[in-house]
Nucleic acid binder design. Structure first.
Lengths: 348, 348
DNA sequence: CTGTTAGCGCGTTCAG
DNA sequence: CTGAACGCGCTAACAG
C-alpha cells in the first residue's frame, strides 16, 4: 500500500534515440538505424554491440519519426458503431487480434452510427497516415474520403461503397430466407419483421430475404407486419412499436433482424405474458449467449462475428500488399440455430 | 453493383502540407501553421484565406510531424485483456468515448491476460509517444516501464502497481460482502466460491469479502468450498471443477466472482438438473443482460462497467494535466441486484 | 502581424 | 561495410 516510488517524474526521461545508441556503441546514427531496422549492411560485431546498447538503454524507436520519414504508419484505423454492442466488440476483437499479430496497431474509434462522427474518424486516420482502415460504415463519405487519399478500406458487416473498396459481409438475404423458411415450414403465414430503418445492405438484405421467402412460399407481403425502428430510437419507443405489431390480426411469428431488436421483442413478449412458442414464435439474429440460456432457447441466425473482423483484416492486408486487385466482396454464411422459441402456430 | 470508380489509385495523392496551403494563400508555412493551430498572431484576412485553402485542398495535418515536433502525441493507449468479454469491451467503450470527446485517439490493444503481450503493448504505446495509458493490468511490469518513461498510467478494474499510478476499481470486498450477506441472511452456511487464481486485487478483494462475511456471521471458512480456476482454463475443466464442488457435502449456495464463471456455474447447475433457488442458490458477478432474462433471474453484483472506463479516462486526463498529484485510487460501488436465483436453503 | 531559421528522430541516398 | 548529409512536415524562437 505504501508508495515506494511516488508518482513524481524525477527523470526528465528524454526517450533514448538512435543517436544515443550510436554514441554508446561508438558508431554513427545511420549504422545504428541499419542495425535496428535490419535493412542494410552492418557487421555482426557492431550489430551485437548496438543491440546490447538498445537493450540496456531501453531503446524504443519513435514511431512518429518513422512515419514521417516513410510517409506511412503501422496504424490501422478501425471504426465501429458502438463497442458496447457485443456484435461490434467482437468484430473489433477479431480485427485487432490479427492485425496486432502482424505488427500493426489498431486505432479504435466509435461513431455512434453518425456520419459526422464517422467522417471525423476518417480524418483522424488520415492524420495518422494509416495505410488502411476497417469500418462498419454508416455512409459513403468516409470511405470515399479515405479512398481519395489512397487509403485501403475494407467495409465490414455492410457494404455501402461498392466498387470503391473491399467488403466482408454476411449473406444477409440467405440468412433471412433460412430463418423465414423455418417459420413457414411450421405453417406460419403472418410473420412480423423487426428491422432498422437504414439504407444499409445488412438491413436491406434481411428485408429482401424476408420478402423473397414469403414470395417463394406464395405468401402475401403485408407492409403492416413490418416494423422499421429508427437507428437511435429509445427502448420505450421500440417496445411500443413491437406491442403495436402484436395487435395486428393473425400475427403468429416474429423475425427480429438484429440482436438488440431480439432482446426488445423477447422482453415485450414476456411482459405481454405470451409464451414461446405456443402463443407466438420468435426468430432472432446474432447468436448471443443469452439466447441459449433462456427457456425456451431462442432460434436465431448465428453470425460469425469474430471471423468477420478477422476476414476484414485479411482482406485489408491483401489489399495493402496489392492495391490493383479488383474490389472484392466476401460473403460469410449465417447459420440458423434452431431452439425452442419456434414451433407451429397456435391454430394453423 | 457496378464499379464506377474502380479501386486503382490514380492519384499519387501526396497529402497536402502546410507548405501547399502557404503557397496557395501566398504566405509562409509558419503563418499557415499559426492559422491552423490557432496559436499565435495572424490577421483575420490571411487566416480566412488560409482556412479556405485548407478546406479546398482538403488539408489534414500530419499527426506524426506534430508528434515529432512536440515530443508527444494525442494518442492514449488502452490495453484490456479481451474485447470479446463484454466487461472489458464496456470499459474500453467508456474510455474511448470520453477521450475522443476531448480530442484524443485511442489505440486499443488486447493482451489475453499475458504479461508478455502487455509489456509489448506498453512498448507500442511508448513508440507512439502516448502521453497516457489506461490498462487493465495483468502484472506490474508494463506499468513500471511506462512510468519510468514518464507516461501517465491509470489502472482500471484492478490495481497492481500501488504507489506508481492512479487506479479506478470496484470496492470488491464490500461487493462480495453484500453478496454473501444476502446469502447468509437466507440461512446459507456452506457457500461455495468460484474465482480465478490470480494475484489481482479484483479476485483477492472478492475472496477477502467472502471470508470477511463468513467471519462476521460466525461461519467457518472451509477451503474445500473454494474453487480457484486458472486464468486460461478451458470450459470443460472449469465445469468439472464446479461439478466437483457440488459434490462437497452440505453445499447450498454458490457465489461466482465474475461473469464468465457465473455462466459456467449456471450451465453446470442446469445440466445437473438442479433448480434455482430450491436446490441451490446462485449469486453472480457483473450484471450482464442474460442474468435478467433467464428464469429465475440471477441475483448478481452489478458493476458500473462503462463508468469504470469513463472514470479511468477522467483520472488520466487529470493526471496528464498535473503530474505532481499524489496517486489516487478511486473506488466505485457495486450494487447487489436481487433476483430469483437466491432463496433459503433446502433444509435450513 | 509575418517570414526566416532551425531541429524534432529517423531512414536513405551517396561517398568513402 | 560505414559515416555524412539531407529532408520528411511541422512548430517554436527570433527578427523584422
Amino acid at each position: 500500500m505504501t508508495a515506494i516510488d511516488g508518482t513524481d517524474d524525477r527523470s526528465p526521461a528524454r526517450p533514448v534515440t538512435l543517436a544515443d545508441l550510436a554514441k554508446a556503441a561508438g558508431t554513427s546514427p545511420s549504422t545504428a538505424s541499419r542495425a535496428m531496422s535490419g535493412r542494410g549492411y552492418v557487421s555482426a560485431a557492431v550489430r551485437r554491440r548496438l543491440m546490447e546498447a538498445a537493450e540496456q538503454l531501453g531503446y524504443v524507436p519513435d514511431a512518429s519519426a518513422q512515419t514521417l520519414k516513410q510517409r506511412t504508419s503501422r496504424v490501422i484505423g478501425v471504426a465501429v458503431s458502438d463497442l458496447r454492442d457485443p456484435f461490434y466488440a467482437q468484430v473489433a476483437a477479431g480485427a485487432e487480434q490479427t492485425l496486432r499479430d502482424v505488427g500493426y496497431q489498431v486505432v479504435l474509434v466509435t461513431d455512434n452510427s453518425e456520419t459526422g462522427e464517422e467522417v471525423a474518424a476518417a480524418r483522424t486516420f488520415l492524420a495518422l497516415r494509416a495505410p488502411g482502415v476497417i469500418i462498419t460504415p454508416v455512409g459513403r463519405e468516409a470511405t470515399t474520403l479515405l479512398r481519395l487519399q489512397g487509403v485501403a478500406v475494407v467495409e465490414a458487416d455492410r457494404h455501402l461503397a461498392p466498387g470503391e473498396c473491399d467488403a466482408v459481409v454476411l449473406d444477409n438475404e440467405q440468412a433471412a430466407i433460412d430463418a423465414m423458411t423455418h417459420l413457414i415450414a411450421f405453417g406460419h403465414e403472418r410473420i412480423g419483421l423487426l428491422t432498422v430503418d437504414t439504407d444499409w445492405t445488412s438491413d436491406a438484405g434481411r428485408l429482401q430475404g424476408y420478402r423473397t421467402a414469403l414470395r417463394q412460399a406464395g405468401l402475401r407481403f403485408d407492409p403492416a407486419l413490418l416494423v422499421k425502428v429508427a437507428p437511435h430510437d429509445s427502448e420505450d419507443r421500440i417496445d411500443r412499436r413491437i406491442r403495436d405489431l402484436l395487435g395486428r390480426g393473425g400475427l403468429t411469428a416474429m423475425f427480429a433482424a438484429n440482436n438488440g431488436l431480439t432482446v426488445r421483442a423477447w422482453q415485450v413478449l414476456r411482459r405481454a405474458g405470451l409464451r414461446l412458442p405456443d402463443d407466438i414464435s420468435l426468430v432472432g439474429f446474432d447468436d448471443v449467449a443469452w439466447m441459449d440460456m433462456v427457456t425456451p432457447g431462442i432460434t436465431a441466425v448465428a453470425q460469425p462475428t469474430v471471423d468477420l473482423g478477422w476476414r476484414a483484416a485479411q482482406l485489408l492486408l491483401r489489399r495493402m500488399r496489392d492495391r490493383t486487385l479488383p474490389p472484392t466482396v466476401e460473403q460469410l454464411d449465417g447459420r440458423l440455430v434452431v431452439r425452442g422459441s419456434t414451433g407451429p402456430p397456435r391454430r394453423a
